[in-house]
Structure formats: structure tokens, C-alpha cells
Design a protein around this nucleic acid. Structure first.
Ligand SMILES: Nc1nc2c(ncn2[C@H]2C[C@H](O)[C@@H](COP(=O)(O)OP(=O)(O)OP(=O)(O)O)O2)c(=O)[nH]1
Ligand SMILES: [Mg+2]
Ligand SMILES: [Mg+2]
Ligand SMILES: [Zn+2]
Length: 567
DNA sequence: GCCGTTTTCGGCCCGACTGTTTTCAGTCG
């Protein structure tokens, strides 16, 4: 699938055009097109073949032609032409924090600078400071920016960022000057990766709050600090932004700071059409403030229902809010069990008893203990004899449990040739079977897709675990045709997993939305190998919510009796 | 470049912080 590949080209084209001083709206339209491509689950080649490209938001005649061109030739002539004579290194200097297209263009044209080395040289020799609008400080800041860029941590997984953020949030809440504080930005929206940590606070004394924030012990550098906001870098080279407002603006500010940017822009545009203005301080008609204490007031002022942060991505939620057709998103409370955990029968650390205890603490009615199957020897996959033994132990434990049941499960290996790792005779003994791939990740699209769909056709397979195999920031998905997987799942009634491990989150939010459209049921599993991992269920729920899923789309919301009837 | 019950032309979100500025442009959120 070339969706994200083409998106990258449009983003690159936007950078080049912006560097060359192209109209900012034109540049933005390429960025919008890039975002639409990334947000589209359907294979863009299929959309193109059916001449539906221009139906996509932000893609018109010209961009559609460029997509067609790329699909045919692997290139976009416009991009190749525009970048002629500009090195990749030059354009990449736009990544330096504080270095925008205007500065870079000036530096490039006046000082003939093409490389980081030459740029640093020009700053040290004082040549940069002589340019109009430049000075000593600008040079110093660029040097610091280069340093920051070199050290910068990439986007970090949600599950890693959350505990760090929650700790900082606690500290901010302890500031004397602070009344309320909440996480905002991509964290509040529970995006799968986080660029920075955004925190909103209301304070009696803004200045005091900002000072206390900048003085936190973990702060390594203060990037900027004014009267309403500050940005700092903490240990681990993570950026934290704090925004401070008055209590009566908290709702408006939370709406603003939660984003997404694209969601905000659309809201503000609608407000404008109604003769209103939305900013982080409230909703205004002329000079008169007509709302802003509560987040809800912002939405209602422009005729929309309030909506949960997870769906604020400009993926149709604003239109749905207008029609009053927002989904009732699944909640953590509705989750009655975890459908993918490992015990020490295979490669998990916890005993069955410990798992049961943790499950009860989480208020569950059931957990599926899905240990690996026999071929997966490195993970101590279970022989049929061990399966029988495990089944007996589960029975024994279940007889002592009151509200919880352990389900005899397996994570059944789908072998390289598409065969399954246990015979049907054994499979029928399990309460819950998740099937997944642990080898042959590099197989071509058709082969690996067929491997998984043939597993789905086995009536004893309840669910396909981590269906794309991606590891966020580490490993690309298999070449698998997810659209085809979902189509087959809809037919066979097999569930697809939302693996809640923070490195996986697989299926992702965008595919979840597509799965719902096709009537496919999802099952959330933490894939826990330690007791602690079972808490990651909240990440799985977050993915489901970001994918617009409701309780009826998620098998984990079913009581045990209903879940069994599914089989 | 995209888009449209106000428009097929003329808009395209709105504000904070910094540095170099004597009134604002650039960058970022
Ligand atoms: N209205 C408006 N709001 C913006 C703009 N840029 C950012 N915001 C708001 C919405 C964002 O969610 C919020 C925080 O900005 P960030 O740059 O940290 O983005 P966000 O947290 O969404 O993603 P991230 O994971 O940090 O890359 O500020 C903008 O250009 N206009
Ligand atoms: Mg952020
Ligand atoms: Mg931020
Ligand atoms: Zn597993």
C-alpha cells in the first residue's frame, strides 16, 4: 500500500515549496492532502483505479493527478522539478527547531549555505549575524536548535509517555498558584505516539506557575517562558509544554490545547461563518464573551455536541456532531475481561493464580490465558499434554473462584505454510483461541494474507492476534492486505484483535474504524507477559475509541455466557 | 491547491514568544 509513501512525497513537496516562498495556502493544501492519505485505510491505488480520489477531503483535480502519476511512474514530476538544485540536507535543515522557511531561504541565498557544517561555520564566524533580521541571539538559538535536533527523541509510544506525563501533572497540581491542571494535546487524545507532553493549568498567579514549572528538578533547558506558556526540555530530551490560563477560560483553553490542530481549525472556521470567534479564551460575538468556562460551551455555541478527545482528529467527527450522530464510544468500565494473556506455562511470568488475582483486582469476569502453541519453542509453546495439564489446573482454580473464570486459551501459531499448530481435535477443547503469525514476516502480500485468512476459516479460531505485526517505531507491518482480512473476518465471524501492548496497538485506530464499517468484531487483549502488562488494557480501549468503536463492536464487553455463545 | 445553501472567486484559525524591530516578522502551539 502506497498511502503513506505518497503522503511523504507531498509533505516533502510542501517543504520545498515553502522554502521557495510559495503561497502558504498552496503549501498547506499539500500538507492537508498528505494527512488525508495517512488517514485513509483503503488502498489509495484502489481509490485511484475507481476514480474516486477527488472525493477525498483536500484532494482535488491537481493532487489527484499527481497521485495517479506516482502510482504509474513512482515519481511526481512537480516534486522532482521543484527540488532540482536543492540538496536533501538543505531541506532537512527545516527540521531545526526555530529554523523556518524564511530564515533558511535567506541563509541559503545570501551565504550559499547547503550543509549543517557550513551553517555552524557561518554562525561562529559572525557572517550570519550580519544578515538583515539576524543577530547574535538568532545564531546562538540556531546552534542550540541543531543540538536539540541531534538529541531529539522521536515520537514516543503513548504507553511510555503516559506515566511520565502523569507524574509531571501531579507535580504541577501541587503548585500553590495552580487550581486545575489536565493533560492536553495528543496525550489527552490518546494518540498512539506522542510528540511532546502538553499540560494545561489554571492559576491565580500565572507568573508564579510558570516559574515553578521552569524550576522543576527534571528540567534541563527552558526553550521559552512567557506570561501564559512555557516550553521546557526534560531528562530524556522530552519536551513539555505548559499553558496557563484563568479559571474562567479553562474550558476554552482545554478545547484549544487538546486539538487536534486540524479539528481546531475546522471548529474556528465554522464559528467564523456564524459570526463568532473561537480562541483559547472563549467564544466571542464581537467583544462579548458568550462561553468558555466549560469545554462543552465551545461546541454548543456552534451547534455541535461535545465529543470525547479521542476522536478529535477531523476524521468526520465534526460532521457527525452536527447531525447528532456521534458514536457512544466504548469505555474501560464496560470491559469484562482480557482476551490475551500469557502464564508461566509458556513465556509469561505469572502463575495462573496470580493472573486470576490480578483479573479480580481489575474487576474482570474472565480472562483468556492464551499461552503459545507447541511449535513456538523459544516461547515454551505447550505440547498437547501440557495443554491438558493446564486445563486441569484451570478447572481446579475456577472451582474456587467466585465472579471470575479463567478461560483455557491458546495463542495458536499460524505456520509458515498456513497450517495451524494444533489439530482440530485439540483446538475444540479450548475456550478461546487467538491465532497469530510468529514467522515468515517477510512473505509477499498474497501469501501472508492467505495464511491468515485460511486460519480464519477454521471454526475453532476465535480471533486473529496482532494482525499486522507492526511494532511502533521499530518494525513495519507485514505486507498483509488488511482490507481482505477484514472482509474475510466479516464472513467467517472471526474477531480481530486490538493488541493493547504499547509497542503494538494492532489493529490501529484507522483500521478499527474500517472494521466497524464492515461489521467486524474486535477483541482487546493486552498480550501480558507480566502482571503489570494487564493494565495496558486502557491503551487498547483508547485505540478502540479512536476508531469510533462502541460497546457492541467489542467482544470483551460481553458477559461470559454471551461470549461462549459466539463460539 | 481546495472548496462552496452566502460564493465558481476569494477566502483559507488565531494567538504567544522571541529577536531585532522603532512597529513587526518569523516561528511555533
Ligand atoms: N488553533 C490551533 N491550535 C493549535 C495549532 N497548533 C497546535 N494547536 C493546539 C492543538 C494541539 O493538539 C495542541 C498541542 O500542540 P502540539 O504541537 O503539541 O500537538 P499535539 O499534542 O496534538 O501532537 P504531538 O503529539 O505533540 O505532535 O495545540 C494551530 O496551528 N492552531
Ligand atoms: Mg503535543
Ligand atoms: Mg506541544
Ligand atoms: Zn501473545
Amino acid at each position: 500500500m502506497k498511502n503513506s509513501e505518497i503522503a511523504d512525497v507531498f509533505d516533502q513537496l510542501a517543504d520545498v515549496l515553502e522554502f521557495k516562498g510559495e503561497m502558504v495556502f498552496k503549501v498547506n493544501s499539500y500538507r492537508k492532502a498528505a494527512r488525508t492519505l495517512r488517514d485513509t485505510s483503503e488502498d489509495i491505488a484502489v481509490v485511484a483505479a475507481e476514480n474516486r480520489l477527488a472525493n477525498l477531503p483536500g484532494i482535488g483535480k491537481s493532487t489527484a493527478e499527481k497521485i495517479q502519476e506516482y502510482l504509474k511512474t513512482g515519481k511526481i514530476k512537480k516534486y522532482e522539478e521543484e527540488r532540482k538544485g536543492l540538496s536533501d540536507e538543505l531541506i532537512s535543515m527545516l527540521q531545526i527547531p526555530g529554523m523556518g522557511p524564511k530564515s533558511l531561504a535567506l541563509i541559503h541565498s545570501r551565504l550559499k549555505i547547503d550543509t549543517f557544517a557550513a551553517l555552524e561555520d557561518a554562525i561562529h564566524s559572525g557572517r550570519l549575524a550580519e544578515l538583515p533580521g539576524m543577530g547574535e541571539k538568532k545564531g546562538e538559538n540556531i546552534l542550540k536548535g541543531i543540538q536539540l535536533l541531534r538529541e531529539a527523541s522521536k515520537r514516543i509510544p503513548l504507553g511510555v509517555a503516559l506515566p511520565i506525563a502523569e507524574q509531571v501533572l501531579d507535580e504541577v497540581r501541587k503548585f500553590k498558584s495552580v487550581r486545575r491542571a489536565e493533560l492536553a494535546g495528543s496525550l489527552r487524545r490518546m494518540r498512539e505516539t506522542i510528540g511532546d507532553i502538553d499540560i494545561l493549568a489554571s492559576a491565580s498567579d500565572h507568573k508564579k506557575a510558570i516559574e515553578a514549572f521552569a524550576a522543576l528538578p527534571q528540567v534541563k533547558r527552558v526553550l521559552a517562558a512567557g506570561t501564559t506558556k512555557a516550553s521546557v526540555i526534560v531528562q530524556g530530551n522530552q519536551q513539555i509544554d505548559l499553558r496557563v490560563v484563568d479559571e474562567e477560560c479553562f474550558g476554552a483553553a482545554l478545547q484549544y490545547f487538546t486539538g487536534s490542530k486540524e479539528h481546531n481549525i475546522k471548529l474556528r472556521d465554522i464559528a467564523k461563518g456564524l459570526g463568532l470567534k473561537i480562541n483559547e479564551y472563549g467564544v466571542f460575538r464581537g467583544d462579548k464573551k458568550v462561553g468558555g468556562k466549560e469545554e462543552k460551551e465551545i461546541y454548543e455555541a456552534i451547534g455541535l455536541q461535545w465529543m470525547p478527545p479521542e476522536i478529535r482528529e477531523d476524521r468526520g467527527e465534526i460532521e457527525a456532531a452536527k447531525e447528532g450522530s456521534l458514536p457512544a464510544l466504548v469505555t474501560s468500565k464496560q470491559i469484562k475481561g482480557d482476551l490475551h494473556v500469557h502464564s508461566n506455562f509458556s513465556d509469561g511470568r505469572a502463575t495462573l493464580e496470580q493472573l486470576a488475582e490480578q483479573a479480580e483486582a481489575l474487576g474482570y469476569k474472565y480472562i483468556a490465558v492464551t499461552d503459545h502453541s507447541q511449535s513456538l519453542k523459544i516461547a515454551r509453546g505447550l505440547t498437547p499434554e501440557r495443554v491438558e495439564q493446564k486445563g486441569k489446573e484451570i478447572q481446579k482454580i475456577n472451582s474456587k473462584l467466585k465472579s471470575l473464570k479463567l478461560l483455557l486459551g491458546t495463542e495458536l501459531d499460524i505456520l509458515g505454510d498456513g497450517g495451524l499448530d494444533y489439530p482440530d481435535k485439540l483446538l475444540e477443547k479450548f475456550d478461546w483461541v487467538v491465532a497469530s503469525i510468529h514467522s515468515g514476516f517477510k512473505q509477499p502480500r498474497e501469501k501472508i494474507t492467505r495464511r491468515i485468512t485460511s486460519a480464519m476459516e477454521n471454526p475453532f479460531v476465535d480471533c486473529i492476534a496482532h494482525p499486522t505485526g507492526r511494532l511502533i517505531g521499530q518494525r513495519s507491518p507485514y505486507e498483509v492486505d488488511v482490507e481482505e482480512l477484514l472482509a474475510v473476518a466479516a464472513k467467517t465471524g472471526t474477531a480481530i484483535e486490538i493488541n493493547a501492548n504499547y509497542d503494538r496497538l494492532d489493529l490501529d485506530d484507522i483500521w478499527c474504524k474500517r472494521a466497524k464499517e464492515l461489521g467486524v468484531k474486535l477483541a482487546i487483549g493486552t498480550d501480558a507477559h507480566h502482571l503489570d502488562h494487564m493494565n495496558m488494557i486502557r491503551l487498547g480501549v483508547a485505540v478502540a475509541r479512536r476508531g469510533w468503536l462502541e460497546a457492541t463492536d467489542i467482544l470483551n464487553t460481553l458477559p461470559l455466557k454471551k461470549l461462549r455463545q459466539k463460539r
